[in-house]
Design a protein around this nucleic acid. Structure first.
Lengths: 233, 233
DNA sequence: GTCCGAACTTCATCAGATGAAAGTCTATGA
DNA sequence: TCATAGACTTTCATCTGATGAAGTTCGGAC
């Protein structure tokens, strides 16, 4: 069958997606060899070049390993690029496992308070203004579940951006890929949203005043509440 | 000329490295087109297949973007996979910029205290034992600069591992790629090493006792000291 | 000056051929 | 029977040539 999310262009991208998704969701088990090139050519309906290019991309993400004459096999999970945008969207895309939700929630608890602290240390005037704008948007959308999700993600991104640290911001961007997918399932209630506003406000105020200790504590409150919600629902 | 770090195998990997390193170190500026396929074939001394496969890998890491008939160009830095193992080793490999050292030090300050906190929440007996073993190795190698670096990285990895969170551990593994390169330049003195032992010990003890608050504070002390060192030298 | 289209550039893909390396099978000798 | 060397097979690695598609550019018509 066709199953062509890529109508005519980007044949190799089709290969990347078809194999990558199957690896990440566990259909292709690490250690086992994947079908040989010729078979993939038939299954996916593309030429050998496209297969090879796609396989090389996945090898670059640590998902596959090709060895001459020994076939191509799925690499162990430890070597996957877990924070790759594609890998994350395959993992959290369709329906995330309960364990993955916990991993995500814990990661935020581990990361965001510290990020808020560094943001309070490093924020310049422009960054603070962006945080304030994001906070205003948060207040403005508190009654609308969907826009609120966007505003919330934007607020947290503004905080990470204030830390003036591209690695940190990259980590957040990757987390937000997963968050956005998960949020749309675990839709939070309007009352819930309104309850988090004061905590977000405290984060913004603390960063504006360069009070890194308070910024960290306030952000911890935010993400601990989010974790409790995520694990309950 | 040959310039073959890859004697006969992995031609496409040669392409990935040659182009990737030039992009990350700034020789190839984002937005500018890279030489056309045919020219790369000549420059790099490989066939078109190898060039195309290598380019696809770099596109998968967000470094390149190919458009039919419009050439292949370097993507803006915002779309790079900054936590990709290759990208990090190109960035921190040869001689890191002063700004990058700061980014790395700040990242640890933002991340590691929170990771230690979650580790204290989630650690099981086996994880605690691994931390204790790593701590013992740290004490045992305090007089030896090089082995101490390894022991230090292993200790921090054990803490991250105790958090039972593959994303967090992945982030640490990537950071440690950068750290290892940087450390070998900024070699710390033996007396310096011995001074950090008590703080590391406090981290281990706090996690063992599941005291997340203390684990976080102790780890903060460790990474703040490391940051101060890194920025001074 | 503007708009349309033809020629050109450059990547996208397929197909065929050759080669290399790793595994597999077989025959031979002890 | 068992071990082993060598031939054979499998499968990826790479090169090359050909065709196609989609932008880009440039000239000409109005």
């Amino acid at each position: 069958m066709a199953t062509d999310p890529y109508p005519d262009t980007a044949r190799h991208a089709h290969v990347v997606h078809a194999l990558g998704a199957r690896i990440v969701d566990g259909s292709l088990v690490p250690g086992t060899p994947i079908p040989i090139e010729e078979q993939l050519v038939n299954e996916l309906g593309v030429g050998r070049s496209a297969v090879r290019e796609g396989v090389k991309v996945l090898a670059g993400k640590g998902l596959l390993e090709t060895r001459r004459s020994a076939g191509t096999r799925v690499r162990p999970r430890e070597s996957w690029s877990l924070l790759d945008a594609d890998v994350l969207s395959w993992r959290f895309g369709a329906d995330a496992q309960a364990g993955d939700i916990r991993v995500l929630a814990d990661l935020r608890v581990a990361l965001e308070p510290g990020a808020a602290r560094v943001a309070a240390e490093r924020a310049d005037a422009a960054a603070i203004q962006r945080i304030d704008e994001a906070l205003a948007a948060l207040h403005a959308t508190a009654d609308d579940p969907d826009p609120f999700i966007d505003a919330d993600l934007a607020f947290h991104r503004a905080v990470f951006g204030a830390a003036d640290n591209d690695l940190l911001l990259y980590i957040y961007d990757m987390i937000s890929i997963a968050l956005r997918s998960v949020r749309q399932v675990h839709t939070r209630s309007v009352t819930h949203n309104k309850e988090t506003l004061p905590n977000h406000e405290r984060v913004a105020v603390a960063i504006r005043r360069r009070h890194h200790r308070k910024a960290e504590e306030a952000m911890r409150e935010v993400v601990e509440v989010a974790r409790a919600d995520a694990l309950h629902c």
